[in-house]
Design a protein around this nucleic acid. Sequence first.
DNA 1: AAAACTATCGGGAAGCTTCTCGAAACGGGT
DNA 2: ACCCGTTTCGAGAAGCTTCCCGATAGTTTT
Lengths: 386, 386
Amino acid sequence: MGMIKCKKCNQIEFIQKSGIMRGKQRYYCKSCDFHFTINETTVPQENRRPHEVTIMDIAHQLGISKSTVSRALRGHADIHEGTRKMILDLAQELDYQPNPLANALLKRQTNIVGILVPEFRHYFFPTFIMGAQEVLSKAGYNVMICQSDESYETEVANVKALLRSRVDGLLVSITAKTDNFDHFRAVMQKEIPLVFFNRVCPELDTPQVIIDDYSGAFQAVEHLIEQGYRRIAHLAGPVTLQVSRLRLQGYIDALQKHQLPLDQDLIVYHDLTEEHARICTRQLLDLPQPPDAIFAVNDPCAIEIMLIAKERGINIPQDLGIVGFSNDPISAIIEPSLTTVEQPVWKIGEESARLLLEQMEHPTVEKRMLATRLIVRKSSQRSLPI
Amino acid sequence: MGMIKCKKCNQIEFIQKSGIMRGKQRYYCKSCDFHFTINETTVPQENRRPHEVTIMDIAHQLGISKSTVSRALRGHADIHEGTRKMILDLAQELDYQPNPLANALLKRQTNIVGILVPEFRHYFFPTFIMGAQEVLSKAGYNVMICQSDESYETEVANVKALLRSRVDGLLVSITAKTDNFDHFRAVMQKEIPLVFFNRVCPELDTPQVIIDDYSGAFQAVEHLIEQGYRRIAHLAGPVTLQVSRLRLQGYIDALQKHQLPLDQDLIVYHDLTEEHARICTRQLLDLPQPPDAIFAVNDPCAIEIMLIAKERGINIPQDLGIVGFSNDPISAIIEPSLTTVEQPVWKIGEESARLLLEQMEHPTVEKRMLATRLIVRKSSQRSLPI
DNA sequence: AAAACTATCGGGAAGCTTCTCGAAACGGGT
DNA sequence: ACCCGTTTCGAGAAGCTTCCCGATAGTTTT
């Protein structure tokens, strides 16, 4: 077998080949019953990212154990004042940053909260996120934001991804198309705190933060009636959403209270896209008996209504009164300015975050409802002097 | 010493007390030189979050080692087809989800990218984020979003927090107040990929994605000149930002090209807040020789200008031409519609993300510039029939 | 001075995965 | 039977932290 020496007994007589492993020849020493390969010293290739400062580095430099360092950094008792100062000083000097990954692995807690929204192009969700983030980051939580883009499949995939990321809690506003809630049941089964907001899901018994959609809608429509409108249409949202249903109910009840007939032709449902809003608006305006006012389920689609009305030369508010919902900043700027129902978006974010934090402490299914307020602007004030 | 038995030699004669540790009595056996405490079996309290399925669970259930399971799941070679199928089936059944924390700890890679923006109330940053997120999530990265709220201190804190979270890369648009860049130098020193976009920082030699602010501004102002405006003001952004400076330079050069005088009174700098925009606008309009057109550094402040002009009964575009920058959706809706410079926001997001991914592969300092396009609407078209 | 404490620190496991290296078993030539 | 090769699997370390428990030295009490 030539010049191969046994790694153990240093003999060369009893060596024989014993197969090939991963390309390298393997040898066997019959004398000492030992298998081995000859590992040519590979280049140590030190091109990896530079090592971050760890607790062990500090321990080594000070000649103490990592336990002691950890205790000093965590502010535990059972440690000498001098030692603590020494450790704290060195940590400062080396700019030591605790590795949250190791911590998360150990504690099974990432300090990350997932926020899942259908979109964040418009005013509502970004503002919500800001409100929630403020509360959460004060409590030491980071935030991971996903948008489902109004797609059920994306929503399911996002929930899965957030669970995989081991988020500690979830803030969710569902898609308009979501009619199966198994992915959220899975979350609940894993006992991961979950709070719905705005677009909640009534089938599931979870904490949630909503606004008083019913009253808001009721007030809005009553206001239109008081302004003298008699044929009031409703550009509704998808029936799948509780928000839409509540606003619709507010619309219906306001008409009923004032003994106005309920004409099914005057209720059209749209899927919250701008395109569909335009289609539905044209449908309403092309009616043999077109409405003299429209209550829209939210501001973005109220805006679309206004644009089409302007296009057709319809006078707002004389020939057509319009009321929106949500008080998007744009509604104050557009002309005529849009009457709308204000909802405390920032506060919804804060409350949702707070409710989530509470749920992390102890299980709860508390549901909170925040008040709305009608903001009367020009688009609905027929009584104004022209 | 009564009935205390030594845990080692089971004798009771040589036991004596030896101090108290954490409330519990400690004993010492003189015979076998052994210290011990009596730990009353504490309640096992199983109120912790239920254990997630791990690779070890699968291994145990199948009576094989975790290495084999890992290999099967990772799709490695060196594994029996039957074994692999068995493992894959069980993993499916148990809904096993690999723990990214353990992986991140091992690989020193979290697959998380941090995005740091000054705000996301308006159109630009949310849209940017959506574009970036699309590219990043396709590449297997999650996104962590922070907003500095135009505060330098918050920006620094956010960068620190993102570094602590061990993000694999950073997409940043700086604050208007940021004039010290040490926190970004720290990022570069740690060799963490970093891409600036929009509000970049020229001092640092990093990859960046910007748009052609200079040309956009130049075109916008030239358009105003062509429309017959002669006393064109500029509501500029903070000089600290390169974007502002480039747009200002475009403004200056356009005036110069057409031999118009450069009046310093007509250039006012504002801090990008709505309030300050209003103050600056009034300052311009109150000039002894007020401007007949204003080029605004972005659309939100162009909107403010329009609102004040309307308030004062100034006719747009006859008495005052206005051009904005960024093509916020609101600019098409407001009346009169706002002439503005379109920037491909979504694409900026995509490109920034792509550049970051490239930089993760190999170091680069590539800078990309995307084209702008002037969108002429009513607010600047004096030549239109009234 | 022995007995009983107190103050301070270290060892090692757990948390979950991937990867390297070696072991074991089996197959096919001679 | 022996030699050499292949296939398939397992042990164990690394990555970083926290926490439990025990060790050690010095201090007070009897």
